[in-house]
Structure formats: C-alpha cells, structure tokens
C-alpha cells in the first residue's frame, strides 16, 4: 500500500514545536555531514566514510516516532541515524576522528557508531548481516514479554541477500516486533536497484511472508515517513508482528568518500533532478509557507547548528588518541556470572 496523499503545506501535521524539531534534526544532520566531508578532506577522518546527505527525512521521520526504550540497528551509513536518535555530535565526531571520547572509544569509526544508553545497537559493516541480529532483538523483546520495537535500517541492496530473507521469514514465523526499514537510495554502491533486484516495489518482498505488513513511501517527505512509520509501529507494537517499509530516497553524495558524485553510474542530469526534491529544503519551504518559520528563524537555526558542528570538531580534535593499552581492551570481558 502506498501513501498517495501529500499533505497540504498550509496544514502541516503536528504542532509547530514538533515541526521545528523535525527540521532542526534534519538540518543538523545535513550540516554535520558537510563538516564530516570537510574533515575527511583534511585527513582528520580516515577509512571508509559514507555520508547520509539527501536521506535525512528517513532517519528523522522514523526515529522521531520511537520510544526511548525501543531499539535501533543500522548499517555503515549511520551518522544521520545516530544524530536523529539523540547521540551527541561530539561523541560521533570524536569517533570519526578516532579519539578516546568517541561513542565507541575510537575502536569502531564511521561504520560502527554505538550507544548503549540510547539502545543504538550500532552501525554494521557487512551488507545484510545485521538483519538477523535485529530479528534476535525482536526475539528477546518477545521472550521478555516487553512491548518495545526494534527498527532495522538497511539499504535497498540488502533485499537481495539471504540474510534478509532468513531474518524476515523468522520474524514473520515467530511474530517478532521488528520494523524493517529499507532506505532505497537507488544505488548499492554503483549498481542501480533495477540492475540488482528482480522486483520493482521492494516493499512487496513482505508478501512472501504471511501476515507481514509492507508499504512504500516517499522518503523525501518527513511527514509521509512519519505516517507510514506510525502505521507500521502500531502493527509491530500492538500485534507483535513484523513490518517492512520501503522508504524511497536518494543519496546526493557518492557511495563513500572515494566515489565521484556523478558521471560513472548516474548522470549529472539525474542528480540535478533529484536535488530539486532535497528533503531539508522541501521541509524548509513548507514551513516558511505555513508560517512556522521566518527566514530569520532559519538563519538563527543555521547559526546555532554551525556552532554545534564546530564545537563537535573542536571537541574531537582536542580529545586524545586512545592510549596504547586500549589496543588490548574490549576483546573479551571478565566473566562475573
């Protein structure tokens, strides 16, 4: 089932405070990621680094619907979701810089952001591998009789892996409270989705599993994402059943930092067309039109966010490298039980 109805911009859902928070969340991700790109170019950040620019309405839309005791697990393109879940820009930036104050103590880097206090179960680097892990979290919720939900983000290329099918089958079979979110940004690295998946509407993968709700939605519209998430969460939480959302978005940057933004596997014309539907600026336009914000308010928010991002950079830069003894820590824990 697709959500066909676009909200009237003059009657935006939610209240102005909520809408402002949603916009703030998206704008923070955008500016933070731009800062990350800058730091990468200067060699402050190493290794693989996958930016989230263009997909902000997905993380903000989905995660704004969760409870604090719900769980989140995601892929290596995890900066946006970490911010939207409430992880600090300082902790994330310090992790990217490989410093001791990073959210994973400098052991994980860009692809492996974790925060136990926020039930943020990590960014994971093997395509598809974390989907069964999400089913396991759903199993544990059910085992304990809780009413939390686990949200599992994945790129669209995951739907072709065996791990995805194995996990969805078990989640449906055992009625686990798992919300599987496909972020369809159209490309698995350089391979277009239609060159990889023998199905057009990816949410129809849900049809293969009895009782699984499936839906696709415009991922550049944060309100549409929230509505679809609300419907899916209701099923997961109230009925303890899994659901599958395909959220259609677009990655404005390359796959990772070494990847040209356009020219190889997608044209500049295509990118330019997609940029017209930038989720952050679409949101801004709608809020200006609805009278939620003035240009001056946006400028003020930009200034505040600029300060936050610069503070994160300064904090990361000042944080020490992990000490030599950290090398051998966290391989095993001492058993207490």
């Amino acid at each position: 089932m697709a959500s066909k109805k676009r909200p009237d911009p003059r009657a935006l859902p939610g209240d102005p405070v909520l809408r402002r928070a949603l916009f703030h969340s998206m704008l923070l991700q955008r500016r933070f990621e731009e800062k990350v790109g800058e730091a990468y170019a200067l060699g402050k950040i190493g290794g693989f680094c996958h930016l989230y620019i263009g997909q902000e309405a997905v993380s903000t839309g989905v995660l704004s619907m969760l409870r604090p005791d719900d769980y989140v697990i995601t892929t290596y393109r995890d900066h946006g979701q970490a911010l939207a879940r409430g992880m600090t820009p300082r902790g994330i930036m310090a992790e990217l810089f490989g410093r001791i104050d990073g959210c994973s103590r400098g052991k994980g880097g860009s692809m492996h952001l974790f925060d136990r206090n926020l039930n943020f179960l990590g960014g994971h680097g093997i395509v598809g591998g974390h989907v069964p892990v999400a089913a396991g979290v759903g199993f544990a919720i059910k085992y304990r009789g809780g009413d939390q939900v686990i949200v599992c983000f994945m790129g669209e290329s995951v739907v072709n892996t065996g791990a995805f099918h194995e996990a969805l089958n078990m989640a449906a079979l055992w009625k686990l409270p798992c919300l599987f979110v496909i972020e369809n940004n159209k490309y698995g690295m350089g391979t277009a989705v239609e060159r990889a998946a023998a199905i057009k509407d990816l949410d129809r993968r849900a049809d293969a599993y009895q009782g699984m709700h499936g839906e696709h939605v415009d991922g550049q519209d944060v309100f549409a994402v929230r509505e679809a998430t609300e419907r899916a969460l209701e099923i997961c939480r109230k009925e303890s059943r899994p659901a599958l959302l395909e959220i259609r978005t677009y990655r404005f940057m390359g796959h990772s930092m070494s990847d040209a933004v356009s020219g190889t596997y997608r044209t500049k014309a295509e990118l330019d067309e997609q940029l017209k539907r930038d989720p952050v600026w679409m949101m801004k336009a709608r809020m200006l039109e609805a009278g939620d914000l003035s240009e001056a308010d946006v400028q003020e928010m930009e200034r505040e966010i600029k300060t936050i991002c610069q503070d994160a950079w300064d904090f990361a830069d000042a944080s020490p490298e992990p000490p030599a003894e950290a090398l051998y820590e966290d391989v095993l824990v001492d058993t207490v039980s």
């Binding site: 052991k107 990590g122 095993l332």
Partner: peptide
C-alpha cells in the same frame, strides 16, 4: 564488544 568500545 571491540567495535562498540566495550558497550556490548
């Protein structure tokens, strides 16, 4: 455990 910096 390692890549989460000891959290999991």
């Amino acid at each position: 455990l390692y890549m989460s910096g000891g959290q999991y």
